[in-house]
């Protein structure tokens, strides 16, 4: 088990370096020179040359990569052209919002997956319905789900807010949900949850249904296996057979599907934030793209990339936990 963790962490670090290299290469192939953009058209040649030297832009490709990594370790991602603030400060403001949204979506998605997998699976009913639901939700663009939800629950029923994280526009950053829970304020928590509900569900539907379908199929397969027959013959109740014996064995394919859905969740979160005006990395990124604010774009990509790489490592380790047979192997 320890070896599996170490191997997986080593691989994660390799991937993080590759990610930084890819992002760096993208940055270097930008058609426009960020220094020129930063200082504007009227800047003197000397000033630009001096700044370029300061930033190391006159050095070789790899030595620049070294500088890039060095700056990364010091938390320096440059300055946003739009907000004129260090990109890192912007990211720190917006990352919690995205993490709260993506985390809630992951939670809702897993819950949904469990409901789909366990409902009717025991009586082998509802396969066709699950299939239709799966196709519908894996085909619906995230923004269509978002738009539909806004029109229905905000515009028509007035049940839920249309967007944002709180009622006031000034408190939109940081750990809104977690802070309100920590402060023990039920009204603020309820408000945060009401704001989270639509975007989180819109984001969770597709991955939740996809994982649920895989888990259901895998559960039905496992229930046919001989060790389950052994348990039935041993007089165990159907409930404990499913929950204690079958489910864990059925998890493996569902966990790999979860890993797959992770990438889609992280790109989906960007779109959902735009639809719901959610002040997170996605909204920040959307504005940055429209204004060609490349330091900001690169910063967001890097952060989302790191989140993805770390969470896929966690998913992989979960597989090792779920199946003891994987532990001996590297």
């Amino acid at each position: 088990m320890r070896r599996a963790v170490v191997t997986r962490l080593a691989w994660m670090i390799v991937v993080l370096f590759v990610l930084s290299f890819v992002v760096f290469s993208i940055q270097r192939t930008l058609p426009s020179d960020p220094v020129r953009i930063f200082f504007g058209r009227n800047a003197s040649k000397e000033l630009i040359a001096q700044k370029q030297h300061e930033l190391g832009y006159d050095r070789s490709f790899f030595s620049q990569y070294g500088l890039f990594v060095n700056r990364l370790f010091h938390g320096d991602l440059g300055t946003s052209l739009r907000t004129r603030r260090p990109v890192v400060s912007d990211l720190m403001d917006f990352l919690p919002g995205t993490l709260e949204l993506a985390g809630s979506a992951a939670f809702v998605g897993l819950l949904l997956a469990l409901v789909i997998a366990l409902t009717g699976a025991l009586r082998r009913k509802g396969g066709a319905i699950v299939r239709v639901i799966a196709i519908v939700f894996s085909s619906a663009p995230t923004f269509l789900l978002g738009l539909g939800a806004v029109l229905l629950f905000y515009r028509h029923f007035h049940w839920l807010p249309a967007g944002g994280r709180t009622k006031s526009a000034t408190e939109g950053n940081g750990w809104v949900l977690l802070r309100s829970i920590a402060k023990g304020s039920p009204s603020k928590t309820w408000e945060a949850i009401r704001h989270l509900a639509m975007p989180a569900v819109a984001l969770a539907l597709a991955p939740g249904v996809a994982i649920g379908r895989i888990l259901r199929g895998s559960l039905l397969d496992v229930l046919e296996q001989e060790h389950i027959r052994t348990m039935r013959a041993g007089g165990l109740t159907e409930r404990s057979i499913v929950l204690r014996h079958a489910l864990r064995n059925a998890l493996l394919p569902a966990i790999s599907m979860g890993g797959l859905q992770l990438g889609l969740l992280l790109s989906g979160v960007v779109v959902v934030e735009v639809v719901f005006a959610w002040p997170g990395l996605g909204l920040y990124l959307n504005q940055a793209i429209r204004l060609a604010d490349f330091p900001a774009v690169i910063g967001v990509v890097l952060v989302l990339g790191v989140v993805f790489v770390i969470s896929s490592a966690v998913v992989d380790l979960l597989q090792t936990v779920a199946d003891p047979r994987l532990r001996g192997r590297a």
Partner: peptide
């Protein structure tokens, strides 16, 4: 192992 859609986003933005 890289987040495909997210990196694609960066590439598209850069190009």
């Amino acid at each position: 192992a890289l987040p495909g859609p997210v990196v694609a986003l960066a590439i598209a933005a850069a190009l």
